[in-house]
């Protein structure tokens, strides 16, 4: 262990964070939720992925502007038989990553039901990001981007397409969601001190609160990332991630 680690002032402690956010990843079975999450946390494609049994947990700390955010990620099983189990995990989630498969219309058709569940059970300020996964399989596309985008606009959720095989855009939904939550904290719509918001302050933020009451997020959109997908209109909203491991 590096001696420097003791010195809290000298180095940024990687484990401290400003906010802790609870996310759920939901959507029909086989849409690639676990693979998307795996790519996000491990930066690699998950081979031989099987159906998720119940729920699985993982976490990752991301950096957004000057803020460190620890994401608690609950990956749920998409199969109907686990619905009663997985629904219990929606409770108090701050963000939901709603995943469908662009090559499967069936996985798109049921989105309303998933969204309704998440809205009903998650935190009142739940931020939802609709993710069209498997964007690498353009040949087999069954759901057009425009259609999904319209659906997202109608239902007031964010939208983008990803590929958990190639890793294209996999970090974007998580960061977009975090940013959106941060903005609602900043605007006062969401109070991390309140339980059930799915967000809480980390030690790092608490320290800062103690030292100065200012809680501005500084430059949230520094260093924009240039992702390949140019049709992503939300690109400008996706803040750069200096700690991004894949690029």
């Amino acid at each position: 262990m590096a001696i420097n680690d003791y010195d809290a002032d000298a180095t940024e402690l990687l484990e401290t964070y400003d906010f802790l956010m609870k996310y759920i990843i939901i959507g029909e079975a086989g849409t690639g939720k676990s693979c998307l999450l795996h790519h996000f946390t491990h930066n690699s494609f998950k081979e031989h992925s099987q159906h998720t049994i119940g729920v699985e947990f993982s976490s990752r700390t991301v950096k957004l502007g000057e803020k460190r955010i620890k994401l608690q990620l609950w990956d749920t099983a998409g199969q109907e038989r686990f619905r009663s189990v997985t629904r219990s995990y929606y409770r108090g989630a701050a963000g939901a990553i709603l995943v469908y498969d662009i090559t499967s219309r069936a996985s798109f058709a049921n989105l309303s039901r998933w969204l309704a569940d998440a809205r009903a059970l998650g935190s009142p300020n739940l931020v939802v990001v609709l993710v069209g996964n498997k964007s690498d399989r353009e040949d087999e596309r069954e759901v057009e981007w425009a259609e999904a985008s319209r659906w997202a606009a109608d239902h007031d959720v964010h939208f983008l397409e990803t590929s958990s095989l190639t890793g294209d855009n996999v970090e974007a939904p998580f960061l977009l969601c975090a940013r959106s939550i941060l903005l609602s904290i900043e605007s006062g719509a969401l109070d991390p001190e309140k339980a059930g918001s799915g967000v809480s302050y980390g030690d790092r933020a608490l320290r800062r609160v103690n030292s100065s009451s200012r809680l501005s997020f500084g430059s949230l959109s520094v260093g924009r990332r240039n992702r390949g997908s140019t049709r992503l209109k939300l690109k400008d909203l996706v803040p750069g991630t200096s700690n991004s491991r894949c690029c």
């Binding site: 262990m1 680690d5 003791y6 809290a8 402690l13 484990e15 401290t16 964070y17 802790l20 609870k22 608690q72 409770r91 108090g92 339980a195 059930g196 799915g198 809480s200 302050y201 980390g202 030690d203």
Partner: peptide, 12 residues
Amino acid sequence: DPDYAGSLEVTP
């Protein structure tokens, strides 16, 4: 915290 979100942190 009724959600016990694990607001526990470990310093180095």
